[in-house]
Write a protein that binds this DNA or RNA. Structure first.
Length: 465
RNA sequence: GGCGGCAUAGCCAAGUGGUAAGGCAGGGGUCUGCAAAACCCUUACGCCCCGGUUCGAAUCCGGGUGCCGCCUCCA
């Protein structure tokens, strides 16, 4: 059974068939770097990182490209306000993006192209569009002739005439048609600019992605993804530009994630109701934020609140506790009886179930539910007085695989220092002598240091909180 | 006005024709020197409302209500 994914282009779940067997070419629209990212920006980074991980888990070789828009009106404005160089601002927030997303368990893309490093290809792209009569110059600007592209509107499922109502013509723009959009913008005096056949200027917003996709992945790619709000006009325009140029389909599957809301309203920089990743991870372990995002289906809107994060924190803690209890038991296990086949079959069932859920349009909400079934099962196994190493290892392996896809770390790999080890040993002695007053005093003392002790038939277990 | 989405327990969230997953929070119990962790039981006779189709609907159809999004920079 193939992976099914919801394609915005057809508004249906479709079985995934890559262009080339075993390989996936995937492009995800990245941020405009003029500020720290908020958690709404973090959602596509996280969910498509998860998609990438899952595709890899299913054996695909994924070539993952995600851009940075490092020159644009908003960055120029921000640079002016901060009295900083445009490219310095961009560089600073690119680093911040990497730091924030890495904390959220997002792996770097294979390529992170930037507008400023793709200038040649962008200019060449526009030249071709002019040559094909899909674009025209007007006063140093270049516009795309939208109506000439017959299929315009196919992604957002809107007719050109319906879209016309919302189209705007900015001050100083010389469009033939309000629907036309800018490919090249002439520079205002003193603005950062690049030379082009149409004079000094810089690329319009949409053209960069078309040029980058073509440069790094080719004319037709497998998956093109981004936030729902990019489907129009950004992705619609990308399709128009790219398909006008190549005459080929730009991407076979278009994936869009839902929003993160605050008080039921979309979180966005322009509304100002945003929470920066940079700030929230001071308060919560970044992996909690990741878990919170992955815990819902990527297309559903999710509401953000501290209460929700606390809930996610406790849920993740439950998984981690079980995982670490398995590890603890592995170290102490007597390796006696227990029905190996029965448990290994059970574990295999959960793994299959996990795959089934993820295959269904990356239903991570259900996949996480399966992970909790695995937790429950593992806890029951841990209650048996005798365990076997191979079963414990099979459990751990299943946890590791699911955790890889979901993108959270489960293992507590910190070591205890000698002083604490000594205290634990002292407490063990006290308990042996039934001196519970001393034992409890030591346990309280360690609790002050955020170390929780748990007594089990297989010896004392510790964890940090 | 055009296009689209959502409405399920105290909170979050799956399920899209076969009799309500999972998590968090709450209550009761077991285990424990006491804890912790865990386990067991418990928490929606009902899935926004009203009709309809069906042996059977949260799921399909019609109508209504409420909320949200895109159509303009936006993940």
């Amino acid at each position: 059974m193939a992976i099914q994914m919801y394609n915005t282009l057809t508004r249906k779940k479709e079985p995934f068939t890559p262009i080339e067997d075993g390989k996936v070419k995937m492009y995800v629209c990245g941020p405009t770097v003029y500020n720290y990212i908020h958690i709404g920006n973090a959602r596509p980074a996280v969910v498509f990182d998860m998609v990438r991980r899952y595709l890899e888990y299913r054996g695909y070789d994924v070539n993952y490209v995600s851009n940075f828009t490092d020159v644009d009106d908003k960055i120029i404005k921000a640079a002016k306000e901060m009295d900083e160089d445009v490219l310095d601002v961009a560089e600073r927030f690119i680093q911040a993006y990497h730091d924030d997303t890495q904390a959220l368990g997002v792996r770097k893309a294979d390529v992170h192209p930037r507008v400023t490093e793709t200038m040649e290809e962008i200019i060449a792209f526009i030249e071709k569009l002019i040559e094909y009569d899909f674009a025209y110059q007007a006063n140093g600007d270049v516009y795309f002739r939208t109506r000439k592209f017959d299929e315009y509107g196919k992604l957002s499922h809107q007719s050109v005439d319906d879209l016309k109502a919302g189209a705007r013509v900015g001050v100083g723009e010389q469009k033939e048609d309000p629907l036309d959009f800018v490919l090249w913008k002439s520079a205002k005096p003193g603005e950062i600019s690049w030379s082009s056949p149409w004079g000094e200027g810089r690329p319009g917003w949409h053209i960069e992605c078309s040029a980058m996709v073509k440069k790094y992945l080719g004319d037709t790619i497998d998956i093109h993804a981004g936030g729902q709000d990019l489907s129009f006009p950004h992705h619609e325009n990308e399709i128009a530009q790219s398909e006008a140029l190549t005459g080929k389909k730009m991407a076979n599957y278009w994936l869009h994630n839902g929003y993160i809301n605050v008080d039921n309203e979309k979180m966005s920089k322009s509304v100002g109701n945003f929470i920066l990743v940079h700030d929230i991870i001071q308060q919560f372990d970044p992996e909690i934020v990741r878990f919170f995002i992955v815990n819902a289906h990527y297309r559903s809107p999710i509401n953000f609140s501290d209460e929700q994060l606390s809930s996610a924190q406790n849920a993740l803690e439950r998984i981690r506790t079980t995982y670490n209890n398995l590890v603890h038991r592995l170290n102490e296990t007597a390796n006696l009886a227990s029905d190996v086949d029965e448990w290994e079959n059970k574990i295999e069932d959960y793994r299959r179930q996990f795959v089934k859920e993820m295959d269904d349009d990356f239903n991570s909400a259900n996949a996480v539910a399966v992970l909790f079934d695995l937790v429950k099962s593992a806890n029951l196994y841990l209650q048996e007085s005798h365990t076997r190493e191979e079963v414990l290892k099979a459990f751990l392996k299943a946890f590791d695989e699911m955790a890889f896809v979901i993108g959270v770390q489960l293992e507590e790999n910190e070591m205890l220092d000698e002083e604490i080890e000594a205290l634990i040993e002292q407490r063990n002695e006290a308990r042996k002598n039934r001196d519970f007053a001393t034992a409890d005093r030591i346990r309280d003392e360690l609790k002050e240091k955020n170390i929780i002790l748990e007594d089990t038939p297989q010896g004392v277990r510790w964890k940090r909180v």
